[in-house]
């Protein structure tokens, strides 16, 4: 799992794969919750919609930037893989981009356009969010299937598309539980209860499918004795899901205590699932075709980026935390002053 740290041609690609993996995980969790809030949009009334927007308004832009960083790292560290993956996923990428464009601008337009057009922009906000989530899930499914395009892989990708969209709305609902109160919070609890299955189905399907598709992954997970120290990942995920389910059924707690907990636990579940996935595919960046070591850029170019990243990424983390701190607490409607 770990490279030779005395050889730059080995540890640099490894470091960049880790950094890229980290960015994708942060993206999935952060944009996951704001996409999820968008997917839940039609279920709320007009005043609630404004508060839902208020709960993600100051953050969505920075959240999406993690996607740009992840794709950027793929582009700069593994250019061959970037070309291979994205030209294979040409159409889903296009659909996702249109989705991201629609929801990003709908944020602004719904607040600034004439009141009679607000409903249109609300609808576009929802459409953009769900289209983005579905296409990301679809791409995830195809990637797991080794980027093969057959009716069977499309069927699997459709399943992961639905599961990811429901999973996003789940983490979105847990975010709303934390950021809202009263009627809307009760609704959010209800939405969370109804969408937890997305996580279970998604993780379950991926866990069952990956070893069946690739004997390499099968051996890796079920090989004795590694299977022993890998066992905590699925076991822990299962326990967390059960804990989450019991907790949500009793929410909200008196005095709004621990309203942040469902979001934190879902984050942990997403992270565990992600670590499992990363373990399955390492060291491949294009499944079973291209490893991170084969796809990497020249070490000297990677090194110059890494030097910058060492200073910049902690700074980014710092001021992102500052922003979340400034806009902590229950969401109010957004205003410019």
């Amino acid at each position: 799992m770990f490279p030779d740290f005395s050889n730059p041609a080995e540890w640099l690609p490894w470091a960049f794969a880790s950094l890229m993996g980290f960015s994708i995980l942060v993206y999935v969790i952060l944009d996951g919750f704001d996409l999820g809030v968008g997917i839940l949009f039609p279920l709320a009334d007009d005043a609630e919609k404004d508060r839902m927007i208020g709960s993600i308004g100051p953050f969505w832009d920075a959240n999406e930037t993690w996607l740009v960083l992840a794709v950027g790292l793929l582009l700069v560290a593994f250019p061959v893989a970037h070309g291979m993956i994205l030209s294979t996923l040409y159409l889903p990428v296009f659909v996702m981009l249109i989705g991201l464009i629609l929801r990003g601008v709908a944020f602004e337009f719904r607040a600034k356009a004439h009141a009679k057009h607000k409903r249109l922009w609300n609808n576009l906000f929802f459409t953009g969010s769900i289209v983005t989530a579905l296409s990301q899930g679809f791409m995830l499914g195809l990637y797991i299937m080794g980027l093969q395009q057959t009716p069977a892989t499309f069927a699997f990708a459709t399943l992961t598309a639905v599961a990811l969209a429901v999973g996003y709305s789940f983490i979105g609902a847990t975010w709303l539980i934390h950021k809202t109160e009263g009627e809307l919070q009760l609704k959010a609890v209800d939405w969370a209860k109804r969408s937890l299955w997305g996580i279970v189905v998604g993780i379950g399907a991926v866990s069952l499918a990956t070893p069946l598709v690739s004997t390499r992954i099968f051996d890796r997970w079920l090989d004795f004795p590694t299977a022993f120290w890998l066992a905590p990942i699925p076991v822990l995920s299962g326990l967390l899901v059960i804990w989450l389910w019991r907790m949500i059924r009793q929410m909200p707690f008196e005095g709004d205590r621990r309203s942040w907990l469902p979001f934190a636990v879902s984050t942990a579940i997403f992270a565990l699932a992600y670590v499992g996935l990363a373990y399955s595919f390492y060291p491949y960046v294009v499944p079973d075709r291209l490893t991170i070591y084969e796809a990497a850029s020249a070490p000297e170019s990677l090194f110059i980026i890494l030097v910058g990243a060492c200073f910049v990424v902690p700074t980014i983390a710092g001021y992102s935390i500052l922003a979340y701190y400034i806009f902590r607490g229950k969401a109010a409607a957004l205003r410019y002053y």
């Binding site: 308004g57 930037t65 950027g72 560290a77 910049v312 205003r335």
Partner: peptide
């Protein structure tokens, strides 16, 4: 690659995070 990476790291995050404070943080 490095030029684009520096753009994302030094510029995109800076603007994306502080735009939230600039727009909605006045009070």
């Amino acid at each position: 690659g490095p030029l684009l990476a520096y753009e994302v790291m030094t510029a995109f995050f800076l603007e994306a995070v502080f735009i939230g404070i600039m727009l909605f943080g006045f009070s």
